[in-house]
Every structure is written in structure tokens, then in C-alpha cells.
Design a protein around this nucleic acid. Structure first.
Lengths: 203, 203
DNA sequence: GTTAGCATGTAAGGAGTTACATGATTTT
DNA sequence: AAAATCATGTAACTCCTTACATGCTAAC
């Protein structure tokens, strides 16, 4: 039991939170959301949907044929929607901000679902991701000038990889700034007379 | 049979082509070569080494204790080196330039081993990778303005992803230029009187 | 009439990981 | 004496893909 990937499950629940969908359509949106260049296979998707349904987080109802005025009848499809339990479960997931949220496997999905996440959690995830990446940069730099020098092509690959990571850090910086502004705007709107006192700067 | 990943196998053979190594040390170099941020597990490495040895591509000999004048005795380790078959196999692999060489899973390893690859193959792989990436960019662009507009965060994620891909294309462009210069230098050195006629420009 | 797209599903397999098991040596 | 690093290995499990199986509808 529990063999389904948390990442995929979260992505599915996140999409279904927006609107009910059937598997085939869900896959297309998932491919956009995940940004993965290879499409998710049905062999992953359908068993995952069944598992979610079995756990009562989503519920599927067959819609055999569209009403006669609709042009395309198609094969009967199973439209899934979130249950109350599913909504609760998703909200719980989206309010957590531990390492699980900012590691490589999950960050993209969590970010794509920022629309359903509160500002505070968004900032925590972005900052967590940022420090994860800078940690990597430091590790890579000390290992590169510490140990023996690499082959020409290997080191070029390394250099390019680090450059991409640096760029991602700058991207995160700009996002963090935006989210902090949003938080400030929110708190200023809440109590207009006092200036924001809990806005901390880092590094 | 044949359950081992071609990517990992190639990486191992490539490193062993440079110098014989034992598993533990091999893993460290593999982590540099693969540039993967999570270290390769022993659970992957050792079975792969056994499989390569069983197929006669590498051969391991136990070096129980270092000679008495060496400081560190350590536990006995198995130092692997390429066999004649292994060298041949690796050369065959490194001279192929099909899609298998430029897809995501393999490109990094193939690039890191460019030092053992001839100029012509290097250029083919770089060009193959480049057209693979531009193909993706076109697909993503047409799908983004064709279908319905996305959530703010999803589209920002998409935008950033495409920017990274664009950057990689420019990186490839500069590498292709360098390799073409090398090829030109080689052919000019071979027959000095004739100017290079087989240097084709693309798009 | 055949290809392409819509729609759902299963079984087998591939490529890795984590957790476990063992043990020597070096550093703190 | 404890902890870190060196060194090799196995079993179970995870998460995904490919290939297969089915069938309907739309377009060429």
C-alpha cells in the first residue's frame, strides 16, 4: 500500500481543486504543470487516481454520454472531483514547508500550486529552496578547487551547471522580494497605522 | 539479464578507461562526472560493477593490503580495470551519435566523456542536442499561446524553464563553434593548400 | 476505410533508492 | 571510547515507463 508518489498525488489534487477533470484531460494539464518534457504515462496516472479514490480523497463519477445538444459524445469517461477529505488533505500538504517542499522532486509542483498556498508558506519554501541551492554551490566550489583538476569537458559541464544554479538563485531572489512585498501589503492593509515590524532581512 | 543502466555503465567504463579504480573511489568520481546532486548509491554501483565483470568488460583484482611502506592498509579492496573487450565496447559506444546520445538521460555523461570522443561525433551530438532543445522550445511556445492561459505561478515557472533551455541552446552554440574550429584546424593541418570545403553552415 | 485522437486500464520491467549487514582504520 | 571515513555488498521497495489490451468517434 501507499506506493503512489506524493509529488504526483499532490499535483493531481491541486488540479482537481481547481475543477473536476477526467484522467485523459488531467494528464494534459499535468504535463503543463509538471513542465516535464516527457509526458506522464497512463500507466502512472490511472493507478494513482484509483489509489486516491480508494482512500476517499477524490471521487469519480462516470459521465457516459454528454446531453444530446453537445456535439461530441465520445467514450464514457470518469470525472473526478475532490472530496471534503481530499480538500483537507491538500490544504494540510500545501501548508507544510519542510525540506520535502523544496527538494528537487517536489519544488516545481509546490511552486505551481502557490496559487493555493498562503504567503507565509510561499516565502518559507522559496527561502528553503534558496538556501538548499547556495549550499550546493558552496559544496561544488570547495570540491572543485580542493581536489585534483578535472578533464576539460567535465569542468566545462560543471561550470555550466553551476551557472544555471546561480541563475536559479537570482530567480528565487526576485520571487522572494515579490512575496515579501505582498506580505507587507497584506499586513499594512490589516493595521494601517503601524509600520511592518516583522519584516526581517537575511544576509 | 541486462538490467543495468546504459548511462551508468558508460560512465563507469569511461572513468576506468582513464585509470583502474575500486568501487568506493569510483563512486566519488562518478558523482563529479554525473554532476548529480544526490550521490549515486552503493546499491546501484556494486551490482553494476559485478554485471560488467560478468560480461567480461571489466576485471577486478583484489588488492588485500598495500605494501608495508604505504601508510594506510585499509580493508581489502577490488580494483577494476578495462579488459580489451571493454575498451572496444566503450569505443563503439562513444562513436555513436544517435538520439540515445543527446537525450536528457545520457547527454551529460556523453559530454563529460568528450575527451575520449572524436571531433566529428562531438559535433553531431552537440547539434543533435541543440535541435532537440529548440524543438522543445517551439512546442512549448505554440502550446502556451494556443491553449488557455495559465495560473500566474505556473506560467512563471514555465517562463523560467524556457529561459534556462534558451540559455542551454546558446551554450551549445558556443561549444559547436569551438568544435568546428577544431575540426577546421585538423583538416587544414592535414592538407594545407586546399581551403575547407565540407564546413556547412546551418540555419 | 484507415488514420488520428479520445478514453481507460493492466502486467511486466527498468533504474534507481533506502535500509540493512559487516568490518577495518583513523580521528577526535 | 566514540565517531567518522573507508570499503563491500544484498534485499526490499519506489516510482516510473513500455507494451499490451480495448473500444469509440472524427476527420481525411
Amino acid at each position: 500500500m501507499r506506493s503512489r508518489s506524493a509529488t504526483l498525488e499532490t499535483a493531481i489534487l491541486g488540479l482537481l481543486a481547481d475543477s473536476p477533470l477526467h484522467g485523459y484531460e488531467l494528464r494534459k494539464r499535468l504535463n503543463l504543470l509538471l513542465g516535464s518534457f516527457r509526458a506522464l504515462s497512463y500507466g502512472s496516472l490511472y493507478p494513482c487516481l484509483r489509489s486516491l479514490a480508494a482512500r476517499g480523497l477524490i471521487e469519480g463519477q462516470e459521465s457516459p454520454k454528454l446531453p444530446p445538444h453537445a456535439l461530441r459524445a465520445k467514450r464514457s469517461r470518469i470525472v473526478y472531483h475532490l472530496t471534503a477529505d481530499g480538500k483537507e488533505y491538500l490544504q494540510d500538504e500545501l501548508s507544510t514547508s519542510g525540506p520535502a517542499a523544496w527538494e528537487d522532486e517536489n519544488f516545481d509542483v509546490r511552486f505551481a500550486l502557490f496559487g493555493l498556498t498562503d504567503v507565509e508558506t510561499r516565502i518559507q519554501i522559496l527561502e528553503g529552496r534558496r538556501s538548499r541551492l547556495t549550499e550546493r554551490l558552496e559544496l561544488a566550489r570547495e570540491s572543485s578547487h580542493g581536489s585534483r583538476r578535472l578533464d576539460e569537458y567535465t569542468s566545462e559541464l560543471q561550470r555550466h551547471g553551476l551557472e544555471q544554479v546561480e541563475r536559479e538563485v537570482r530567480w528565487l531572489d526576485s520571487l522572494i522580494t515579490i512575496e515579501r512585498d505582498r506580505r507587507r501589503a497584506r499586513s499594512t492593509a490589516r493595521d494601517e497605522d503601524r509600520p511592518g515590524t516583522d519584516v526581517k532581512e537575511q544576509g
